[in-house]
Design a protein around this nucleic acid. Structure first.
Lengths: 181, 181
DNA sequence: ATATCTATTAACATTCTTGTCAATAGACTC
DNA sequence: GAGTCTATTGACAAGAATGTTAATAGATAT
């Protein structure tokens, strides 16, 4: 499947690997075929973004519909977002396209946002929706930053690989403190 | 000055605006001249990154050497980082280059990191250096994510422009709570 | 004044990416 | 079987970004 190949290339080669010629070659087809299916290179990337979004929604739904507490929800949100190629693609678009609307519409689906809002608000005393919003935005933006610059940041900070692995858990542990306070 | 023009283009046109031909045109010179000075397009971007880093260091030093408390330090760190073109450039490199080392070395200077570490640790009870590290990483990564995806995120969340402006202040207010706990 | 070094320029070359097009093959309908 | 539609392909075209080069001009030192 073409999008699976594209996703693999994104993971391995970064954004540069996400061009139609290389993807087509990896998938064993002509790049014209790829264009025929997705209309344009940008269309292919949008399709990939949508696919990754759906996977993310599926994974988040599992947790949101479970008995998991706010800390686990936030931890998983952070983990999933920071590891997802979706984050990279979303960020790259935001950097290249000046157009916020486009990025927003094809980026995080309304569905995911709604589920998150309700799921987190439910787990907060008083169901403070504004607080939920803020915490989600913080979790998401730090996940984006961490997904992109995490390794480089830690290198700059002189932190070990072990500390890198522990950071998401630390975030999942700490952020919920903002709720209880 | 060429780098000033480049910085302006980065702000206005995003990463796409950061190519030698457009910058040269804006600066009123031939693009060959630009290459002559910086060696390569990549060299020009590195020079810009270094310049923006130095400006960031200057601004952060002011606050770190003042009487400001941990909250103000973190708030300013978040504000400066999320608004700086340096963040965009750093993130873009991390997305394009798979090489962490390059990004880290030319990204956040050791000087800034050291100052931050000492400055924040000093403001924490017990001068817990590990806690300082974690909080700085959280502040930086969320600033990166916010700087890149902030507007798109808020649009997805259905938050108003006012709420967007208030978010940095909220972060500056909340993150220090992790210290006191 | 001559030589040397640097800055600048225009024109050209290269490479990468995307996109177009006409031709072909296969499947499916009538 | 003829016709139609879709998928696929190779060849080619277009555009963008970077880089090269030879020529020119200006400054500075000897």
């Amino acid at each position: 499947m073409i999008l699976a190949t594209a996703g693999r290339r994104l993971e391995v080669h970064g954004i540069r690997g996400l061009n139609i010629k290389d993807i087509a070659q990896d998938a064993g087809i002509n790049h014209g075929t790829l264009l025929h299916h997705f209309g344009s290179a940008e269309g292919m990337r949008t399709a990939l973004l949508v696919k990754l979004s759906e996977e993310l929604i599926k994974d988040m739904s599992l947790i949101l519909n479970s008995e998991a507490g706010a800390d686990q929800v936030i931890l998983e949100l952070f983990r999933l977002m920071s590891q997802s190629g979706q984050t990279k693609l979303l960020a790259w678009r935001a950097l290249e396209e000046a157009d916020t609307k486009l990025v927003a519409s094809a980026g995080l689906s309304e569905k995911l946002i709604q589920q998150l809002l309700e799921g987190v608000a439910e787990r907060i005393r008083g169901k403070d929706i504004e607080l939920a919003r803020h915490i989600i935005v913080l979790a998401l933006s730090s996940a984006v930053g961490w997904g992109i610059c995490g390794p480089a940041l830690l290198k700059s900070m002189g932190m070990s690989r072990t500390q890198q692995d522990q950071f998401p858990a630390w975030v999942g542990e700490q952020l919920p403190k903002l709720i209880r306070d």
